[in-house]
Nucleic acid binder design. Structure first.
Lengths: 234, 234
DNA sequence: TGTATTTTATTTGTCGACAAGAATATTTGC
DNA sequence: GCAAATATTCTTGTCGACAAATAAAATACA
């Protein structure tokens, strides 16, 4: 386990323990500080966060039901592997959710929603300008999550966020193995999407989201094809 | 809390405790033995199932992350309410998932998948013949879950099952307040869907699933419109 | 030397206990 | 008699401990 997990433990309020562990673990998993397959030692974690195993176990149950960790009965729990064999199911669901959430956002957006979306787009744009891949990945996720929120269908939002998080792990793998220049194209595509949502043009939103999704899928597949080695074995 | 929760506790194997509590609670919630809004008392549950609070709490965390229960910090956890105000988001997601899963089933089904689906349809048909509404609701869920499995996209399957379960709760409310005759039409619609999946006719599968979903949505809305009282307040 | 078997050690799943917070009951002040 | 303040009861969140299950090490054996 990585040293980055060690942090100065702030004064914890009662009832915040599970949430605290959950968020730390989640961040570390999505940032690949804890790479897929790494075992999670409850006792070590308990010592490092200076709390007992109970809240840690509850956080692990929560992570497990989101698919981020896998618990083998009576055996160690580990960070879930990325299923490279069935990537197409991931891309398929991702594309559909891009479309559906963007459509709904165009239908149901309020002005406040728009402002939040623009806010995230600004941060995204900054990250691309700064050629900061990791920040770009995170802000891209937030941008699309905000669009989903504007669509106001929590069923879609929760699935989409799960997919975005899974994608975040994959992108981290590839962006860290190749240091490409980050394409300005993404920024303009985002701008187009915002325009469609603002105009409440559902058809345009759908089309743009679909293209954007294809774009991203293709990008990931290009990375994968270029990468001879398999970064994490299954 | 209801007496049906009391059962002769079988000899439990170590490591099965959480699973055991989880399944009992889940069943009781979906069958409305524990109606929306009912508080869940950890201590009572622990006594009745003759185990400690630890595995019960872990089961509750799992249920909470699936949206079946709601935990207020430092306060009692309760069975989640059904959000009647935003039913349209539910219907929207439901319809989409009906279509997507049935399409994929038509694409990817194996002969084994088909056999499993037919099996569930047989049980469903029996329930309709017997005018057994509760069994019909349960077997209908299993039928469509089997179709989703045949589509082999776990992201869709998990969302769809969540929606089907939520729908199961709603249908229970209305089928128990009105004792309608169960429409034979559902059985023939299922048969048509099976035929399309067998023929791997994606377009037909999509269309039939869409109609089937509309059918069900309309049925629920009719029930609701007829029901003056609001069965469970929010 | 390599394999099978026993022993040891580690880790998980569960338990009972306890303290902080919230809800309820009781007392006090007006 | 009613409202505010206090005390009490109850529930939750967390802890340390222990036993079953597994993994690792040590030993016996071919």
């Amino acid at each position: 386990m990585d040293k980055k997990l060690i942090r100065p433990v702030p004064e914890r309020k009662r009832g915040q323990g599970v949430k605290y562990v959950y968020e730390i673990l989640r961040d570390n998993i999505l940032d690949l500080v804890l790479p897929p397959g790494s075992p999670i030692d409850e006792i070590q974690l308990a010592e490092r966060l200076s709390m007992s195993r109970t809240p840690i176990r509850e956080a692990l149950v929560k992570l497990a039901s989101e698919g981020l960790v896998t618990t083998l009965p009576n055996r160690s729990t580990m960070v879930s592997n990325i299923d490279f064999l069935n990537l197409h199911t991931f891309f398929d669901a991702m594309t559909l959710m891009y479309r559906v959430t963007t459509r709904l956002a165009a239908e149901n957006r309020t002005d406040d929603d728009l402002e939040i979306i623009r806010d995230h787009q600004l941060k995204f744009s900054d990250a691309v300008q700064a050629q900061d891949a990791l920040t770009m990945i995170a802000t891209n996720r937030d941008f699309h999550a905000a669009i989903a929120e504007a669509g106001k269908n929590p069923y879609y939002t929760s699935l989409f966020c799960r997919l975005l998080d899974e994608g975040r792990r994959m992108l981290r793998i590839y962006y860290s193995s190749f240091d490409d220049q980050l394409p300005q194209r993404y920024v303009t595509e985002h701008d187009d999407i915002i325009a469609a949502i603002e105009a409440q043009d559902v058809a345009a939103a759908d089309k743009l989201a679909s293209q954007h999704a294809d774009q991203i899928v293709q990008q990931i597949q290009t990375f994968m094809a270029r990468d001879r080695r398999r970064p994490i074995d299954l």
